[in-house]
Design a protein around this nucleic acid. Structure first.
Lengths: 207, 207
DNA sequence: ACATTTACCATACAAATGTATGGTATTTTT
DNA sequence: AAAAATACCATACATTTGTATGGTAAATGT
């Protein structure tokens, strides 16, 4: 349906999305021009025209900042650049560890965070279920008691984090599960990031 | 901390929030003037100045639509105008029915939806826990198998919806709970809306 | 080889936009 | 009773902003 964008157009669209998601308000032509080092607004104008023609955006003519994304009727926009984005991502180091990873964009998500779609029920002791989306920030230092996403022994877990003297303890919400103690034995242990939120879409669950 | 707003200022701030949340982009002075029937942009300008002085908004000077809400550093903004806003809302019909309702605003939510913060564990059979946010769309017709928020007998429930010949059945996820059958006996039954999503913030849960 | 698309530049212009200033009437505070 | 805040109006002005038009050079498609 949608026609392919060129590299430049993709970059501009990405910047557009970034601004809308991050700042909450679409940029002006001048904003975009400045960001890409264009000396001229008309350049951006023409790119927007091209992008609009390909169906990715809609313009409210004569309106300042009147650019809308056609993409999102929904909460989550499956990023078309998924493959490439994941490549630059901390997660790629463990591409197989987490069952299935999708990187949708959610509005107003902190810029440095990413989303993981949880598949499998291995995380349900943290009230997180298959199909849920966890919002993970890899740049936040987890404090004791916070929930982290971590990899150990090729499995992904979401648990409460406690740092002790010589070890790290990962505690489940569910008391049935015993805490996992991380010490030197675990060579393949890595904190992926701090889980700052969970989202679950009900849309498709109707069976 | 925050100084009280006047009635007019409150209305204008509400409209501002409405626009930012609903349309995704702040209105111009002219937009606001038009909406309130002011013949003059300067009137709005002055109201904004007053509202800014009281600390509710921030203005990026010289920037079109450069108004920001001071309110929201977070995902969810507990609406300070809750009472009044709720007044124009479908929910107000049952002001006491749902344990505690907060009407936070989330960016880029489908325009006609609203959020309910769930308090109390009465909804946990749908994997929804105290503190979670459910996203409810009152304008979508629930189909069989979808999750709805409903009011019956002064209690709010979130359950799977099934329409039968002469009755409506509300089924829990958890088989321990028996389905609720709605027939003519329930005078005070009302579907609030279709639950299209659940969000949970992990931020504050660190104990 | 020729046409089209892409990716920029420059200039010009009307409309939109934020802002400044001054004014009037009413309400609230002191 | 006087001062301050509120709620509007009008006019004027400099920018910002979107848009239109025309041009150049390189890449791509046919």
């Amino acid at each position: 349906m949608k026609i392919e964008l060129t590299e430049t157009q993709k970059n501009i669209l990405d910047f557009l999305i970034d601004q809308i998601k991050g700042k909450g308000i679409p940029p002006t032509l001048a904003d975009v021009a400045k960001h890409f080092g264009y000396k001229n607004r008309a350049t951006v104008q023409q790119h927007f025209q091209a992008i609009e023609k390909k169906g990715y955006i809609r313009k409210n003519p004569k309106l300042s900042r009147g650019i809308e994304l056609t993409l999102e009727e929904k909460f989550f926009v499956p990023k078309p650049v998924l493959g490439e984005v994941a490549a630059g991502n901390p997660l790629t180091i463990y591409p197989d560890a987490i069952d299935t990873i999708e990187l949708p964009t959610i509005a107003r998500m902190p810029k440095d965070s990413f989303l993981l779609r949880v598949k499998g029920d291995s995380l349900k002791d943290a009230y997180i279920f298959s199909g849920d989306i966890v919002i993970v920030n890899p740049n936040l230092e987890p404090k004791n008691g916070q929930i982290v996403a971590a990899i150990l022994d090729d499995a992904a877990v979401v648990k409460r984090f406690y740092k002790k003297k010589n070890e790290i303890e990962l505690v489940s919400e569910n008391p049935e599960y015993k805490p996992i103690i991380i010490d030197k034995k675990y060579a393949s242990f890595k904190i992926v990031g701090l889980v700052i939120g969970v989202y679950r879409s009900m849309d498709k669950k109707a069976v």
